[in-house]
Design a protein around this nucleic acid. Structure first.
Lengths: 224, 224
DNA sequence: AGGGTGACTGACCCGTCAGTCAGTCCGGCC
DNA sequence: GGCCGGACTGACTGACGGGTCAGTCACCCT
C-alpha cells in the first residue's frame, strides 16, 4: 500500500531529477516530467505539492546526505586517512546521484529568490564549517597559516567543479580513488613547483586564453 | 547622435545587469529593468533584440574580456610573478564588474538549454586551456605530475567560488593582493601540513559537518 | 452483481510576462 | 507656423505553462 505509493513516488522523483538535470529547472516543464514518467500531469500533483516542491525535495535530500557523510577528524589517529575518508565520502554521496548533483551545483540558483537564499546559506554553512575546521587545524599545526575562509572557498569551489564535471560525463574516466588522491594531493601540496632560482632550459610559453564566444543563437519563431 | 544612443545603451545595460544580478535571470522581468532604468518597456526593445539578448551581451562582454586578460608565461623570465600577474588580471576583470560576474557564475546556466551549452563550452574551453598549460608546465618541470585536467577543474572551480564570493560582498574584506597571494599559495603548496609521523599533543576533533537543511518553505495558498 | 474507493487522467482555466505597435512628444528645418 | 522623423511610451496581446478537478477506470469487498 503505502510502500507501493512510496515506490512510485521515488520513481517519479528519479525521473524528475533526470528531466531537471537534462533541461534545467525552468526548461523542464511539468508536462515533460509527466511524459518522461509516462503518467498524466495531474498524477504528479498526487505525489507532490508543486514543481518547486519536487525540486526542493531533490536538493534537500542530497544536502542532508552530504551533511551526515563527513566524520570528525581525530588528530590522534591517522589524520591523512581520515581526511581522505571525508573526501571519499563526499564524492561517494555526490557520485551516487549525478543528476541531483548537477542540480545542486548549477541549477539551484535559478529557481527563485527564496530558493537562492536557501542555497546561499547552504554554501555559506558549508564554507563556515570547513573554515572553522581549518582554523582548528591551524591551531594544531596541520594547516598552513592564512585566510581559512578563503581556503574553504577554494576547496568547496574546486570540489564542486570536479564533482559536477564527473557528474556530467556518463562514464568517468578516472576512478574514484584517483580523484581522492588528486584532490588530497592538491590540498596537501598544490601543484606548482616553482623553484625561485629555476631557469627553464628552453623558452616555452603557455597558450593564450582564447575562448570562443559565439553570438547568441537566435531562436524566435517567425510568425509566418 | 550615435554616441548619445551608445551611451544610453550602456546605461541600460548596466541597469539591466544590476537587476539580473539582484533577482536572477528569470525573476528579473523586463518591466523591472524598464522601471529601474526609468524608461518604458518598449524603449528597451529599441536598444536590444530581446531579454535574452541583453543577458547574452553582458556575459559575452565579460567572457571576451577574460579571454584577453591572460598573458602567455615566458619561462625565461620570472614565472612566479607572471603567474601572479595572470591571477591578478583575472581578478581585476571580474572585480571591475561584480554584477556581471555573479551572472556569469551562477545565473548563466539557468537561462535556457542553448545558453547552457554555450556556458559549458566556455568553461570547457577555459579548463582545456589551463590543462594544456599545465601539461606544458609538467614538461618544463614546474608543475607536479598528475591529472592536469583535474588540476584545471579544481583551479577554475576554486577561483570561481572565491571571486563570486568577492562579487557578492559589497565591501571586500580582503585586498586584491591578499587574494592573489592566497590563491598563489594554494596552487604552490596547498594548505595541509600533514607530517605523517606527527602526533598531536592533545586530542582534538574537527566539527562535524552539520548543515542546516530547513524543510522547503511551503508557500501555497491553502484553499480553505 | 453492484457499489464503494482511490488512483489516475487530461482538457481546461487563468495568471503571467515577453514582445508589439499605434500613438504622443519634441527638436529641427523650411 | 507647419511638417517631418526619430525617440519614446505603455496599454495591449497571445503564448505559455503551472495547477485544477470532474470524470473514468480498475480493483476489491460484500
Amino acid at each position: 500500500m503505502s510502500t507501493k505509493k512510496q515506490d512510485r513516488r521515488e520513481v517519479l522523483l528519479r525521473v524528475a531529477s533526470e528531466v531537471f538535470a537534462a533541461k534545467g529547472y525552468h526548461e523542464a516543464k511539468m508536462d515533460d516530467i509527466a511524459a518522461a514518467a509516462d503518467v498524466a500531469k495531474g498524477t504528479l500533483y498526487l505525489y507532490f505539492q508543486d514543481k518547486r516542491g519536487i525540486f526542493t525535495e531533490l536538493i534537500d535530500g542530497l544536502a542532508a546526505q552530504l551533511s551526515t557523510s563527513i566524520i570528525p577528524v581525530d588528530t590522534e589517529a591517522d589524520v591523512v586517512e581520515q581526511v581522505k575518508h571525508n573526501i571519499r565520502a563526499v564524492i561517494g554521496v555526490l557520485a551516487q546521484d549525478p543528476h541531483v548533483t548537477s542540480l545542486l551545483f548549477d541549477q539551484a540558483s535559478g529557481v527563485d529568490e527564496g530558493f537562492r537564499h536557501k542555497m546561499d546559506s547552504f554554501y555559506d554553512g558549508l564554507k563556515a564549517l570547513l573554515s572553522a575546521s581549518l582554523e582548528e587545524g591551524q591551531r594544531l599545526g596541520i594547516v598552513k597559516e592564512g585566510d581559512t575562509r578563503l581556503y574553504a572557498s577554494m576547496t568547496v569551489g574546486g570540489l564542486r567543479e570536479v564533482l559536477n564535471e564527473a557528474a556530467g560525463r556518463t562514464t568517468g574516466k578516472r576512478t574514484r580513488e584517483q580523484v581522492v588522491e588528486a584532490i588530497f594531493g592538491m590540498l596537501q601540496g598544490g601543484y606548482l613547483r616553482l623553484d625561485p632560482e629555476r631557469k627553464g632550459p628552453t623558452r616555452r610559453v603557455y597558450a593564450t586564453l582564447g575562448v570562443a564566444t559565439k553570438p547568441a543563437k537566435r531562436r524566435r519563431a517567425t510568425k509566418g
